[in-house]
Write a protein that binds this DNA or RNA. Sequence first.
RNA 1: GGGCGUUUAGCUCAGCUGGGAGAGCGCUACCCUUACAAGGUAGAUGUCGGGGGUUCAAUCCCCUCAACGCCCACCA
Length: 887
Amino acid sequence: MEIENNLPKTFDAESAQDKWYDAWMKAQAFKPRPGKQNKTFTILMPPPNVTGKLHMGHALDATTQDTLIRYKRMKGFETLWIPGTDHAGISCQSVVEKLIWKQEKKNRYDLGREEFMKRIWAWKEEYGSEIVNQQKKMGVSCDWDYATFTLDDIPNKAVNKFFVMMFNEGLIYQSDYIVNWDPSLQSAISDAEVEHKDVKGFFYSIKYKVKEDPNQVLIIATTRPETMFGDTAVAVNPNDERFKDLIGKTAIVPISNREIPIIGDEHVDMEKGTGCLKVTPGHDFNDFEIGKRNGLQIINILNKDGTFNKLAPEIEGMKPKDARAEVERILVELDLLVEKKDHVHPVGHGERSDEIIEPMISKQWFLNVTQMAADAVKAVEDGDMTFFPKGWENTYFSWLRNPKDWCISRQLWWGHQIPVYYCRHCDHKWAAETKATECAQCKHPEIFQDPDVLDTWFSSGLWPMSTLGWPDEKAMKEKGFDKFYPNSVLVTGFDIIFFWVARMMMMGMKVTDKAPFEHVYIHALVRDKQGRKMSKSLGNGIDPLDMVKEYGADAMRFTLAAGSGYNRDLNLDPERIEGYRNFVNKLWNAFRFIHPYLDKAKDDLPIKSEWHLHDKWILAELNTVAKKMNESLDVYRFDEASAEIYSFVYDKFCSWYIELSKNIFWGTNEREKIVRATMLKYCFSKVVNLLHPIIPFITEEIWMLLGNEKNLLITQEYVEYDKSLENIEVQEMMNKFIEVTTGIRNIRAQVNLKPKDEIDARLFTDDKKLAKFIYDSRHFLKDLANVKSGTIKAKISEKPKKSASLATTHTEIFIPLEGLIDINDQIHRIKKDMEKTENEYKKVESKLSNEKFMNNAPEEIQNEVREKAKLFQDKLTSLNEILASFQ
RNA sequence: GGGCGUUUAGCUCAGCUGGGAGAGCGCUACCCUUACAAGGUAGAUGUCGGGGGUUCAAUCCCCUCAACGCCCACCA
């Protein structure tokens, strides 16, 4: 009989994606809704940059968080997933600056602050939402009504409020400091934004004359001779016998012929270079420290754009690279250059601009984080916040246990302008939450606001609160601050544990006294299949949207979930996505199989007495999977959860249960058909339910086709473990049955039987339950291994002669094929198996005969070993029997 | 230099509190069998990085060596 099937042979991912995303939105399925748990579950999405294009890191973020939120939603939590975007100060500003320069050959100063800001906002409005559309393609089920942009009104208020709080507590202060100056951005950037790269350069040895003794010359080694215009001392180690006498004397800086003191400072490494160090406090971090210790003068010889200023007249206007060459030329001319040799050394580069960073003195705002950092450490130590995997707390601690004050000002325009005002009239300086129009002290209207903006992470640190309305009381009420703060879990990559996690902890606890989340799940970083970082320069990036297009969002999500556990890297090979696309398709085709029988299926399971052994088995297996999936997802082991359901679908459901159903559907017993159809529908409902958090689209589609046109799967209750379905006995029996069936197939393959060749199988076992199980399943062996006839007898019975044979630990299998098989080949195979089994037997036997083992090993283990020994023995006996049958 | 981590099948990785080495992909052979060739059936492959120790028993615990990766510090 031909079965009509109007479903397409492959799953159409693309149309399902759009269809179901719209349906979920329409049903408002992403909005928080009280459930049976009577608890909330909140996730805060790490806000992608507005400049951004979706990359694999976002895809992983989206997959893990969406899987969690869908899982918890189905479990009956009142779930809220908050999306948002970040203004990304530096990178966004530089993108727009570059664009304007390209189109109009104008920089931001040409346009002026107001006009430039207008342009950047316009750019943001046009391109800033791109990433949101891309996220939707992947099925993220966040509540878009909560979407927040870091420069929105409320985050803005939050920033000002927090700033003023800290300012008034005296924790925010302004100081001259040596900062990492990015000449291309013309802004200070934080230590953490500086990336050190090895660069090929030279080590120059230069003569510095000593004033007091014209014959004496100090040889100073440096990689940066051009900074000598900023030298304000020469330092030697006070313990260095070679130079001890020089301390207190005066050195003369070459070229400019300035006189500078020779000082002693422990920092100087006697082994390194020549043991003499030129000290340039204005342009070197260590020298800055030396300068502070010794009260040295600071000379700034650089302009903001990184060129030299008039204090270095010989190289004024040059960039460091040219300046270095020029200084070298002059030194050679003056015969002051002793040596120049190749030298590779690390040089700081701006993470975003990739420009060489110049250490430079400037006035910056700082936040004293000493106490906040200590509190943030304590919260984790006390278990108020837990890292998954736990090891990441070390990274967190290592940052926060040695906190350096946070340089929070940036010389940019795009961002939150620092809410500090200055009065031109009375010189008063104050911080205000709302825009000031007159001096807080003398009421004079001639005031101006600090031109700098705050580090992007300043607003990011307040994100868990500001997205829920803080500090606006009305907004907090509307958004349910009290209900959803603290968040349940934060999902992010380890690269921003300090940048973001630590700062949210510090700031959140400062304001609310509570850690902003209970758990932090740190996922892997996505790399290419060779383990390299995906980057533009390597060109090895994989665009998630390309993958979605090619394989479907579900396939990509499953791949990412299957790769996410407690690992640190996720090496992604598109071939893996293809593999899981095949899995998605397998699921689809399994559904196509049951589809024609659905009209026979009842809504409720039949009474237990009607359950076939195979039914009991599949329900027990399904139940086991449900248990493991719940357990795994609870602790963020997406890899385990994926593997469980994957192997269930392939190795249990498709390979056996569906195969075992064909005989029934092709038979004539209508009642059996109804029972089986009901079972299949039931199992399939559970399977798509279990899979939904990971692959939402196909599961929602199948759920509908299973006859649930009115109820969306997204709002169903997640399958949980059910003790009444447990059935270890049937599971064991079925495993043996599978072993026997595979054994028969194995023999068929060995002797090159064609699938069409029918066989007669003679089975011998002493396991009576198994014998009955096989007998009850005898009709199925026709479909499974093309067994036409056969017998099951006790092992003691007479065996057929010269058959193709094989033994398991419980059953001997004989396929009488005399004349068709090579007897020697058979004997060879049996002997080989025997050898292997003997080896295994010896291993366990040696344990049993080991007195120490018998005295020390726990009884449980001893029993297990005894059990194994018996099984191997049984198998050996069987193999001997078979061998005898060839005599 | 300081810290963290990794090393298990050709590739990517899993192996929880020690007790017979696993998965996916790839590979080989046979099969277009009425859900699926994006498939089926069967199969091969590992001194669990090296060395030492603890233990009745070590892929798992301890020490040590090696290789690799990441983070931090470092422009003499």
